[in-house]
């Protein structure tokens, strides 16, 4: 579904924690409407890359341009307002709340009523609750979460929690979705489901997806574009086929004899 126009431009990003350089001069573009996979061995800097993109970390050097706007120094909330949503590697759900409440928090940027109106439960506040509930129910149906609406998320198995987190990201109606290892720790069946959801989200809503994944068969099957990181540097960038045949990538994954 890619249009070829870059929606996200990563330009020469360098990020260091004290003496450790997590990302070293990384540049790549993500085209509007594509599924872009970021892969690499453990500790390659993939999660740090996502954290830079959505403003959790501020890089020492370089620029992140999203939708033509420089958002390198923006806060996570401002970037979310530009239309970026995200799921976390270790599940960023709110453990004390139910599935429904968790997904409803994803609509927080659509709320216009003030806390006073909400406390008095009048007019706009009541209307918004119903509107947001309707939007949430659409996503619940899309991701097949109907049976667990009122369950506290802490009681759900891992695979379902991942799906609830995806639902929370989706209800914000994002232009771009960042997924940090959406399929790690899942069985084959669940991985298939998650891959299908990613493809459907991409096709149905035209959402650009950037995902980190370790399962190569999934990456090669669903992504339009693959970026390979190793020790904080970019070693590969292209279509799945190009990357598969790149000698540096093969070396990084299989090791080389010196």
């Amino acid at each position: 579904m890619s249009t070829g126009n870059p929606i996200l431009q990563i330009d020469n990003i360098t990020l260091a924690f004290g003496g450790v350089t997590a990302l070293n001069g990384i540049s790549f573009d993500v085209a509007e409407g594509e599924i872009c996979a970021v892969i690499g061995p453990n500790g390659a800097g993939k999660s740090s890359m996502l954290n830079v993109i959505n403003g959790v970390y501020v890089p020492q050097e370089g620029r992140v341009v999203f939708k033509g706007q420089d958002c390198t120094k923006m806060r996570p909330r401002q970037i979310a307002q530009l239309g970026m949503a995200r799921t976390f590697q270790n599940i960023g759900l709110f453990q004390g709340m139910t599935v429904l409440e968790n997904i409803l928090t994803g609509r927080c940027m659509k709320i216009r009523s003030t806390w006073l109106e909400q406390g008095l439960n009048i007019g706009r506040a009541r209307r918004e609750e119903v509107e947001n509930r309707r939007a949430v129910e659409e996503v619940i149906e899309f991701l097949h979460l109907q049976g667990i609406r009122k369950t506290p998320v802490g009681k759900l198995p891992y695979g379902l929690q991942k799906r609830v987190e995806l639902a929370r990201a989706l209800v914000a109606e994002p232009i771009m979705l960042l997924q940090d290892e959406p399929m790690t720790g899942m069985n084959l069946e669940e991985k298939k489901d998650m891959s299908c959801y990613a493809l459907e989200i991409n096709r149905e809503y035209g959402t650009t997806i950037v995902l980190i994944e370790h399962d190569m068969s999934v990456v090669m099957d669903i992504s339009d574009h693959v970026v390979v990181l190793d020790y904080g540097a970019k070693i590969g960038d292209g279509t799945p086929d190009e990357v598969k045949n790149n000698q540096d990538v093969i070396d990084a994954y299989l090791g080389v004899t010196h």
């Binding site: 959505n54 959790v56 806060r75 996570p76 909330r77 979310a80 307002q81 949503a85 995200r86 976390f88 960023g92 759900l93 709110f94 453990q95 004390g96 709340m97 409440e101 928090t105 994803g106 927080c108 940027m109 929370r168 990201a169 914000a172």
Partner: peptide
């Protein structure tokens, strides 16, 4: 409650 349970995730989803 979102701020109570996980403030990083809360800021990322726009709270």
């Amino acid at each position: 409650m979102a701020v109570r349970d996980m403030d990083i995730a809360a800021s990322v989803i726009g709270i």
